[in-house]
Simulated assay, not measured.
Amino acid sequence: MPSSSRAPTGRLAPSPTGRLHLGNAWAMLLAWLAARSRGGRVILRMEDIDTVRARPAFAGQMQRDLEWLGLDWDEGPHFQSHHLDRYEAAMEDLRRRGLVYPCYCTRKELRGLASAPHAGEVGPVYPGTCAGLSSGDCAAREAQGRRPAWRLRCSDEPATFVDARRGEQRIAPASLGDVALRRSDGVWAYQLAVTVDDAAMGVTQVVRGEDLLDSTPWQVFLLGLLGAPAPQYLHVPLLVDASGERLAKRHGSVELAALREAGVRPAAVIGWLGARAGLLDTPIPMPCAAGELIPRFTPAALPSGPVSTPDGIAALLRRLG
């Protein structure tokens, strides 16, 4: 990570919508190491604003899985569902300043953007269809039973941030479209919630998968509007299955609970992940504790591309341990 005289405050921020898997463990181990290697603090935050899918039981299981891996934290767990007033206050400030607008586009209309030539890495770029609606236009749409989402008016000025692997990045938020901050069903969007929470909690270091790199210009722009500094960023390569698909909760065989039930020890998981991250001297993984990797951690050691998880990983890890 970029040098700084202050120890960072990092965060582990899982979404309790399922059980943690090996891909989660990879990202969280690297986030934990990035903070601990510089004498930093770690906050645990449960990103549970998805009220349909989030479950308290998953949150509890995630804490036990992190403890099993040896990843501790200094503060939390915090729950986003307890901070709804915080998001409301931020939205009201943005609304008062004319920085957000209601969007009445239906899901079908938004899906139609997916095949447009301006579709981006984070999805179709919203073209500002509702950005210029008058109060009469809005009233007419609401009379039809439409409820608005709320979008941020994004700037053409580049948002500048430094990624510890990729260097300085300059990306105009408007090139990604006007991002939604609140859904039409009233649920707060990821981009607003994580940005407001990072600012409120004093997070100065964000380590996450490189699939979220394209979200960063929006968040840096929003932090500036809220008067908060941008943290240091490190977007790490993804852990993928044998076909190159990003590991997700649907990959049940690599859930930490399933690995544990198969007789895999946490030291085997940490050793295998540490070897894949380039933090061990030997190409053959050796069991180790998470703390043993702290002095070895450096972003420069991380691989340049996705990290493949072989078929039969549970059996491999069991033999390793």
Rank of each mutant, 00 (worst) to 15 (best):
P2I: 15
A7F: 03
A25I: 07
S37Y: 04
G40Q: 12
D48S: 07
R55D: 14
P56V: 09
A57M: 04
Q61I: 10
D65P: 01
W68E: 00
D72Y: 08
W73R: 06
F79A: 10
A90Q: 11
D93H: 11
R96V: 10
P102W: 04
P102E: 00
T106G: 03
R107A: 10
K108W: 05
L113S: 08
A114P: 05
V125D: 04
L133V: 04
S135F: 02
R147G: 06
P148Q: 06
L152N: 08
S155D: 09
T160F: 15
A174G: 00
G177Y: 07
D178N: 07
R182M: 12
D185P: 03
W188L: 08
D198R: 02
D198Y: 09
M201H: 14
L213I: 12
P217N: 11
F221A: 11
L222W: 14
G224S: 12
A228Y: 12
R250D: 01
H251D: 11
A258E: 00
L259Q: 03
L259D: 04
A262F: 02
A277K: 11
L280R: 15
P287E: 10
E292D: 14
L293M: 07
P299C: 01
A300Y: 08
P306L: 00
A315D: 15
A315P: 02
L320Q: 15
